[in-house]
């Protein structure tokens, strides 16, 4: 009887989704968010001049280690924050989506700089006009390039989002663009012009 009155099923029916807003796990949810907030590991995705500011942010003068995120992981499997620093060309777009797909949940994206955010002054055929057409972006950092303070401000904004957002659900999935990779479909018949 008590089970039917609950709005969502237990752990068996809906998994971790059912743990949201639970009475017993309310404090645990805050603890998980607190732990996630202070251990965000960024992936290396520097593409242009914004990457220099991103490296300067990790340096001793600004010291990203104060936020628990000093190491830019070289493998997307070990990262949960992608700082897209620089302009994304059309050829780089599937690579960026693949790196994002290889990252473990939960994962966040900071669009650093105006080129990643909207194409900036590169309004041409070669540059993706906004990286949120490919991946869902959580925080946009304006500037060309953003100073380390701006990047740290966006990281603090992301911390606030992690601390106040949902534990398991993501707010959006970008523009819904899915890049499908062609799998191996057997040997392709080669025609030499003689049918």
């Amino acid at each position: 009887m008590a089970r039917e009155s609950r709005p969502s099923g237990g752990l068996l029916e809906s998994g971790l989704e059912g743990l949201n807003h639970n009475f017993l796990t309310g404090t645990l949810e805050e603890l998980v968010k607190w732990a996630r907030k202070h251990s965000v590991m960024p992936a290396t995705f520097g593409l242009a001049c914004c990457a220099l500011e991103m490296m300067a942010t990790g340096g001793p003068h600004y010291d990203l280690a104060r936020y628990g995120m000093e190491v830019f992981r070289a493998s997307p499997r070990q990262a949960d924050l992608m700082i897209v620093a620089g302009r994304v060309s059309q050829k780089m777009a599937p690579v960026l989506r693949q790196v994002y797909d290889q990252m473990m949940e939960p994962k966040w994206v900071i669009s650093m700089g105006v080129c990643a955010s909207s194409g900036g002054m590169f309004n041409n055929y070669a540059i993706v006009q906004g990286v949120d057409q490919i991946v869902p972006v959580d925080v946009y950092a304006p500037g060309c390039p953003p100073t380390p303070e701006t990047l740290m401000h966006s990281i603090l904004t992301l911390h606030h989002q992690i601390a106040t957002g949902h534990l398991t659900r993501r707010p959006g999935e970008g523009a819904g663009i899915v890049i499908e990779q062609a799998g191996p479909s057997g040997p392709v018949p080669v025609s030499l012009g003689r049918s």
Binding site: V114, S117, S118, G119, G120, M121, G130, D138, V139, Y140, A141, P142, G143, C144, P146, T147, E149, T150, H153, S154, T157, Q161
Partner: peptide
């Protein structure tokens, strides 16, 4: 998300209406 803070608008303005402050620590969701 497009402005690159080049200050060309400030130099072009004939009435000095638009200028730039010294604050750039802001971000958007």
């Amino acid at each position: 998300l497009r402005c690159i803070h080049c200050d060309l608008c400030v130099e072009a303005c004939p009435t000095e209406a638009i200028t730039e402050s010294k604050m750039f620590e802001f971000s958007f969701t």
